[in-house]
């Protein structure tokens, strides 16, 4: 079963075309990275897949989007969740309450223990009652990750989730996300990133995107076995090789 299928997806904001004939299929269980120049329309694509555009951001959208072989509009609530850059946590809710939010919205009960377990899994045991402002940037993103996992979404969308973190924190988050992928807590995921290394470490496939209007230039499979980060924190040499290949290609695109 395909988790996500798009057919000739085009999008315009006014007269400006942002997506140009996007066609791809992502299998269930795949982790796919969208990599491309800044402002090319990667995040816009993710928002179309999440049903945000054109619902709350007006745009003209043509083409088809299927999630789990059903049209996007027919997808059941809770099948998708979104993790963004910093700012997605509610400042008046504790880490635990933020983690439970998705379950409350979906009307599911008895989620306190599950939220505590997830916070423990992301390394925040003992920080449950802290407010977002009392946590570091990395910790906040761990809470955001736990919050998206609590509803067990079939598809996780991540929009530059680690963009605001320093390099050491980002690398520890890569390890965490890899673990969550291995434990099948992250099932199918699509994520947008500017970091070539991040794409190579986390993804099974990388879509190299053109500058705006955005189209897929290359579908790069990443067949490097996990874990791709060694215990000493170094990247697998195959990752570095692929990252160098992609860097050269992206420089050429620009």
């Amino acid at each position: 079963m395909n988790a996500v299928t798009t057919e000739n997806l085009n999008l315009w904001f006014g007269n400006q075309q942002v997506l140009n004939g996007i066609t791809f299929a992502v299998n269930k269980g795949e982790v796919v990275a969208f990599l491309g120049p800044s402002g090319c329309g990667k995040s816009t694509l993710l928002r179309v897949l999440g049903g945000i555009i054109p619902k709350i951001t007006p745009a003209r959208v043509e083409g088809k989007v299927y999630l789990f072989d059903s049209p996007l509009e027919e997808t059941k609530a809770g099948a998708i969740d979104l993790m963004s850059q910093e700012g997605s946590l509610l400042s008046w809710r504790t880490a635990l309450e933020n983690t439970q939010l998705g379950m409350e919205i979906l009307g599911r009960r008895n989620h306190r223990n599950k939220a505590q377990e997830l916070l423990q899994k992301v390394g925040l045991n003992g920080f449950c009652q802290r407010l977002p402002r009392e946590l570091s940037g990395g910790m906040r993103q761990r809470v955001a990750l736990a919050a998206t996992l609590i509803t067990q979404p079939e598809l996780l969308l991540m929009d530059e989730p680690l963009a605001n973190l320093d390099s050491l924190t980002r690398e520890s988050m890569w390890q965490l996300i890899e673990e969550l992928i291995n434990q099948n807590l992250i099932k199918t995921a699509l994520f947008v990133t500017h970091s070539i290394e991040e794409a190579v470490v986390l993804a099974n496939r990388i879509f190299r995107m053109s500058s705006c209007p955005c189209r897929i230039i290359e579908d790069v499979p990443v067949e490097i076995p996990r874990p791709r980060i060694k215990s000493n924190g170094a990247l697998d040499p195959s990752c570095l090789e692929l990252a160098n290949y992609l860097r050269a290609k992206i420089r050429g695109d620009q």
Partner: peptide, 8 residues
Amino acid sequence: LERFTVLR
């Protein structure tokens, strides 16, 4: 707001 929208 986007997350609330995604979660319907």
